[in-house]
Nucleic acid binder design. Structure first.
Lengths: 237, 237
DNA sequence: ACCTGAACACCGTTCAAGT
DNA sequence: ACCTGAACACCGTTCAAGT
């Protein structure tokens, strides 16, 4: 059911002519506008169509259902975040672990705060759609980029960089989410960035120290398993 | 609008007789059952009433709207988590920072995984309700408990324990959320617990080391502000 | 005090008819 | 190829009438 649902979220048909391409663009823009001006509960297919200057029928020609509209808006946002993270990671390659960590944290926070209103509105949307394939896929991209960058650090050798990156990014997203939920201002974002840098650096230090030798029973139990069983990417449901 | 909305989410009237008390109980149970068996999208006021063995009218006598139903179910879950965390923190008082950290992580994960199906279903519900007062209030309780415990550690003196606790708990909830989203199994939960312990210990080490001296511009800028401007509790919207 | 269920307004989705 | 908008099924919420 899950994969089928996710697939169904994609646009119903590709626009073949310039006219319909503009229509789709207008609809997606309308979704974001209605989301920001009226809020998610008031986001109605009729209202979106009205704002986009088309009829409901047209809307349903390109999107199979209301969720697909939100999905499209979420897609835009996540694409932006992923691209920003990938760029930051590529640029930080080969520098010290400390620098790389800072670059990742900064890029993540910057990407989320650049379109703060949209990001906040979409946090709810993302949850309503469930932990969609889209969110997972974006997570995978970001983790891959971060792992590549961190593995390139000259002054750090992690036993399991994949897991370390998954842990760090989950922690980062947790803090970012909290600041959003608390309606944080610029000062809160600065503080979050500073704390996240300390957090990640401390974690990497500790991992490099404690990681290699099996510390307790659970860690050892997992170490024997295949990569698929890691916290990281969702290789399987 | 926010506070008013949140207030309106509470039950409409207190049950005065034993009969109605049973009715409310039946309705809340029905919400959880429908949520688990039919899923959130199929959760209908009629369906809940039917499952509870009452009419829609009765349902609306105690809950002002559908969201209030979900709110009540979420309330149950969060209450359980908060109580568990408070107990764990109280019990760990006075022990080493390392032990306390472990206790907090373990209690958090245990509370969430004890009712994994319910917790997962409610993660979405919580988002649909927005970052409700309820979620924030529970966060405040947990942070307060954790701060009290950590401040009691003999081997640790943090400059800003409130912020440190807020950071740690946000990171923890981020990792927990990720494991849920990835549909993690028992091995993933064990791995998450281990990583979280390393993460938090490393963070506290680093905080105690780097914290006291102003490291960069942003940290210093915040340090001068009032406690209300911290990442932590949402003292104001 | 508590409960019922038909009635109302509104929303998501479809489809026959148009250009 | 693309668009329209009346029509349908269903859902949240109310309220006059019951016990």
């Amino acid at each position: 059911m899950d994969v089928a649902t996710q697939t169904a979220l994609k646009p119903r048909k590709k626009p073949r002519q310039a006219r319909s391409e503009a229509t789709v663009e207008a609809i997606v823009q309308a979704v974001i506008q209605v989301l920001l001006s009226d809020g998610a509960p008031r986001l109605t297919t009729t209202r979106v169509a009205e704002r986009a200057g088309v009829s409901v029928g047209t809307l349903y020609q390109y999107f199979p259902h209301k969720q697909a509209l939100l999905y499209a808006a979420l897609d835009r946002h996540l694409e932006g975040v992923a691209v920003a993270l990938e760029a930051a990671c590529a640029q930080a390659r080969g520098r010290s672990a400390s620098t790389i960590v800072e670059a990742i944290v900064d890029a993540y926070v910057a990407a989320k705060t650049a379109d703060a209103a949209g990001a906040r509105a979409l946090y709810r949307v993302a949850a309503e759609l469930g932990a969609s394939e889209l969110v997972k896929a974006t997570g995978r991209r970001i983790r891959a980029a971060a792992e590549a960058a961190l593995s390139s650090a000259a002054d750090l050798r992690l036993e399991n960089p994949r897991r370390a990156v998954a842990t760090m990014l989950a922690a980062i997203s947790g803090l970012v989410r909290t600041v959003f939920e608390e309606d944080g201002g610029a000062a809160d974002w600065r503080a979050a960035r500073a704390e996240l840098t300390i957090l990640c650096r401390g974690y990497l230090d500790a991992s490099a120290r404690d990681g290699p030798r099996a510390e307790a029973e659970p860690a050892a139990a997992i170490r024997g398993k295949s990569p698929a069983r890691q916290i990281g990417p969702g290789d399987s449901p």
